[in-house]
Nucleic acid binder design. Structure first.
Lengths: 218, 218
DNA sequence: CGGGAAATCAGGTAGCGCCCCGATGGCGAG
DNA sequence: CTCGCCATCGGGGCGCTACCTGATTTCCCG
């Protein structure tokens, strides 16, 4: 499949001002055209498919469905569609999850507006764009893990993620037990395992972690 | 002082993409000109004065000095300079603090890009711009407090804010007591008062509140 | 001056969070 | 098939949190 002359782009971000700014930046380029906008992840998936976009620019934190989830969904439904992740946070966790979800790039909002343009072109050429310190992070992690370069992301099991989410939403162990139809002791055990895996010590640290990961909104 | 023909605007936001988007939106208007940009609050104050801007658009959460602090500082140093607060959060707390700091408007990033244009024109006419639900919030609060319409913002005392911050940073009561050179009992008491004032029940909720308020980073 | 708000500290209690221990059934990989 | 991971559940212990009542000092404001 040859590179299309004009890249059809979808922008998804819950901030209207960011969307319209991005649209102006991209539309000013002759080889790019913004064909759709979305306010949340679910809308992004829907419109990206309907408008036959070549590339989707997704904000990591959006209502209803996060950018990460949307990227994974799009990757599954239409693999040839490229995705770029847009983020406020220079976060290792987000970066890994974005790449795992099949994103072709990870661009920080704090970067220059030319970054996003470069990222779009890199993605359409089939290569990847990462902001400079992201590369450093990746290399460091690669070395740290003895060159394995895989795994380690989802240290937490699905069930543990579920429990973590409820903890960070200020539910007590008893409330979590009732909601999940399990005993308090099991909740206790899950929390223990989560704390061990993450090297943390209490619910406050877990709460901050869950917010950083985008599992819940503050 | 007559309204200037062209409004000289400063934009302050730590996200380059937001800045350049905003700049494009505003520069497209014949009566507006973006004369300076800043990445943080301190730089915003400095450049707003140096460039003799008529209006400063400040993001609430920025490094070094928040938009709220910058607005208060500008209000003091140059009262005729108008300020608009730009925020991601539909947050009552931020709204009040912005107005208290002398801002002429409060615009949500999730709003349309025409909102900010309207807000700029309203500010230069000497009136205020608030996004619709902000007005509702203000009115509701006015009624709730029996028409007092003041106070109540800083429900927490400075000391309580200090304790809250340490709680949300995952310190135990004992650690907080050591850091502040007070007894555990006092810390306990402060936490109790904070929980009562905010109507919350545990440290997890306090953590989320502290993050929403920008007291700490997740 | 008198009152209120803020900050400090004390004692007590119930419950929950955090941390050990061990155990079982299911399920997929090797 | 066996091994390991996951999810489930139990007992017991200790310290901290959450909630209560009551008290003192300081300081500001009307």
């Amino acid at each position: 499949m040859p590179t299309p002359l004009v890249t059809r782009i979808l922008i998804a971000d819950d901030h209207g001002i960011v969307r319209s700014g991005l649209k102006r930046v991209l539309d000013a380029k002759p080889d790019m055209e913004v064909v759709a906008e979305a306010e949340d992840g679910a809308e992004a998936v829907e419109k990206a498919l309907k408008e036959d976009a070549h590339l989707a620019i997704l904000d990591v934190s959006m209502p209803r469905m996060t950018g990460i989830q949307a990227a994974a969904e799009l990757q599954k439904r239409k693999p040839e569609l490229k995705t770029l992740m847009l983020s406020m946070h220079d976060s290792e966790q987000f970066l890994f999850e974005a790449l795992k979800a099949g994103a072709s790039g990870y661009v920080l909002k704090s970067g220059a507006d030319t970054d996003i343009v470069d990222a779009v072109r890199a993605a359409m050429r089939g290569s990847s764009y990462l902001y400079p310190s992201a590369v450093t992070t990746l290399v460091r992690d690669y070395v740290d893990r003895g060159g394995l370069g895989e795994e380690q992301f989802d240290v937490l099991t699905p069930r543990e993620l579920e429990v973590l989410k409820l903890i960070a939403e200020a539910n007590t162990s008893k409330e979590i037990a009732d909601k999940l139809f399990i005993s308090i002791k099991t909740v206790d055990r899950h929390r223990q395992n989560i704390l061990d895996k993450l090297g943390m010590r209490d619910r406050v640290e877990l709460t901050r972690y869950a917010i950083r990961r985008g599992l819940i909104q503050p």
